[in-house]
Design a binder for these strands. Sequence first.
DNA 1: TTATAATTGACAAATATTGTCAAATCAAAT
DNA 2: ATTTGATTTGACAATATTTGTCAATTATAA
Lengths: 105, 105
Amino acid sequence: MKNNNSVGEILRKHREEKGLLLRQVAALLDIDTAILSKIERGERKAKKEQIVQLAKILDLNQENLIVQYLSEKILSEIQDEVLGEKALKVAEQKIKYNNTKNKEV
Amino acid sequence: MKNNNSVGEILRKHREEKGLLLRQVAALLDIDTAILSKIERGERKAKKEQIVQLAKILDLNQENLIVQYLSEKILSEIQDEVLGEKALKVAEQKIKYNNTKNKEV
DNA sequence: TTATAATTGACAAATATTGTCAAATCAAAT
DNA sequence: ATTTGATTTGACAATATTTGTCAATTATAA
């Protein structure tokens, strides 16, 4: 069904497909391999800048990767909140409202 | 139309309705009035614990206030992200997916 | 085994958040 | 106009969180 791959899974999959080592990619990002390892396994979050770099290095669609990344960030914000889902919906309503209003400068 | 009151607006409105001073409420929260002033004006975010306390102090519906609070937190996460709205939708899809799946332990 | 890659965890550095304080501004009442 | 009390502002301190390093460990395979 090809459901939701996490950012980490995507990164690892494509890095391996390209035959790159953690060490090599980490060097391009100017960080220790330990961090990249953790990012790929979902133990740490990447910085947005790193996501952008990784998309380039691994020839990934930058938009998709960023959307995935941001959605994980959003979810981590509400992870153990009972009211998280409600809050998400309200957030969306607010965005939509701002889209319909504010058409003029 | 009674659209979206921000957390800050809600807090200020109800504090004033109760005739309480910043100084008094801040004392109950054990913080300086300066911070509460900033929270009410949206210049700073409250901590969740403070939101809970404030709901009690001001006799507000705790759930509503928390939902409002969390939605603001979510939005601040994506505020100047072009892909923010997309990310929100993806986040919601993921939550829904997890709701339908994972019914068993 | 040795050699290379990846993982782990303790800790350090950097950044962001939350707070204090004192001075400035504001509003109401003399 | 001046005093008084409330709020606001901004510089900075304290604290918490995030991001990183490093060294030791584990895994893989040659």
